[in-house]
């Protein structure tokens, strides 16, 4: 990986300036909370740009570490702002939905004679409710992304957890002639981790794989213990793969390769957050036309920082 280019820096500074502008505007127009949020982001953005400048000439490895740290800080700040926005938007959404439903109710009570126009109005109301629900999915995802869920550490039988989730996906997969292949290494040690959070990640990845394949193909899920004793899970599909220019964005919030309206683009961002909180790592690899493969590596127990279970 090479250092940041001129355009990267330019974009970074431009973002900072734009965010400053937005902050000023928001504060003047009375929305202090969001304004302050934007101000924080702008500051962070400026800081990032400065660091990018200073980093020119540093060796690649150091640069990579720096980059990771920045990414984490940036995501945390973005998460907080996003959660604030999501909360603010949820209230008007609830009102829109309620008003649409109420309008429908009034229409029924008014006993207006059935005409094509009336049907049209009803259709339109239904669409409003549907789109509100879609928007609510997005805000729910945002809140989920920002929520810092402290992992609760218990003994986890990873193979069993994966078998359960695979069985759940298998039924729908079979209907589209997708085979779910399990290559689970027997005798894996129990790990100390958070089972519900891992279920969320595995289910999400399996579902993505199923959607990527569409029909006729296979999903292979495997587990093994690596040399360094960490447990490695891979989920590979035979879908159309992810083009190389997109793969580095695959874990970014709101990035999606799915049809508009079918995904919020938050699933993988949330999954990455979860895996990192468990002391693990998640990566994606793909060659166009040959499917995609996601690899998770998990420690036998999370390092310090995460509290341990009292039970044996």
């Amino acid at each position: 990986m090479s250092g940041p280019g001129k355009t990267d820096r330019l974009i970074s500074y431009l973002t900072a300036i734009l965010l400053f502008g937005a902050a000023v505007f928001l504060i003047i127009s009375g929305n202090t909370v969001l304004g302050l949020g934007a101000l924080c982001l702008a500051g962070l953005s400026w800081f990032t740009s400065r660091r990018l400048l200073r980093r020119q000439g540093k060796p690649d490895r150091e640069w990579l570490l720096d980059e990771r740290l920045l990414q984490t800080q940036k995501l945390a700040a973005m998460g907080e702002l996003a959660a604030g926005v999501a909360h603010e938007i949820n209230n008007p959404l609830a009102i829109i939905r309620q008003e649409a439903e109420w309008t429908g109710q009034v229409l029924r009570q008014a006993e207006i004679p059935e005409t094509p126009q009336l049907a049209e109005v009803r259709d339109s109301l239904r669409e409003i409710v549907q789109q509100v629900d879609r928007a609510r999915d997005i805000t729910a995802g945002l809140l989920n992304l920002a929520r810092k869920r402290e992992p609760v550490i218990q003994k986890v039988d990873l193979n069993r957890l994966i078998r359960d989730m695979a069985a759940l996906v298998e039924k729908e997969a079979k209907a589209s002639n997708i085979q779910v292949i399990r290559r689970l290494q027997e005798g894996l040690p129990l790990i100390e981790s958070d089972a519900p959070l891992l279920r969320q990640v595995i289910l999400n990845l399996l579902n993505n794989a199923r959607q990527a394949v569409g029909k006729d193909g296979s999903i292979t899920i495997s587990t093994r213990q690596a040399q360094d004793r960490r447990i490695v899970i891979t989920i590979a599909d035979t879908g159309s793969g992810i083009p190389p220019e997109l793969i580095r964005h695959i874990f970014d919030p709101f990035f999606t390769t799915k049809e508009p309206g079918t995904g919020t683009g938050l699933g993988l961002a949330i999954s990455r957050g979860i895996i990192h909180s468990l002391g693990g790592d998640i990566t994606a690899a793909s060659r166009a036309g040959e499917g995609a493969e996601f690899t998770i590596s998990l420690p036998l127990r999370p390092e310090t920082g995460v509290r341990h279970a009292a039970t044996a």
Binding site: D164, K171, A195, P196, L203, N207
Partner: peptide, 20 residues
Amino acid sequence: HASVESGIQGMQLGAFDYVM
């Protein structure tokens, strides 16, 4: 009825497990 969609929803909402 195994439904992946509601399984994901359930886990996201903080369920402990989703069992068939």
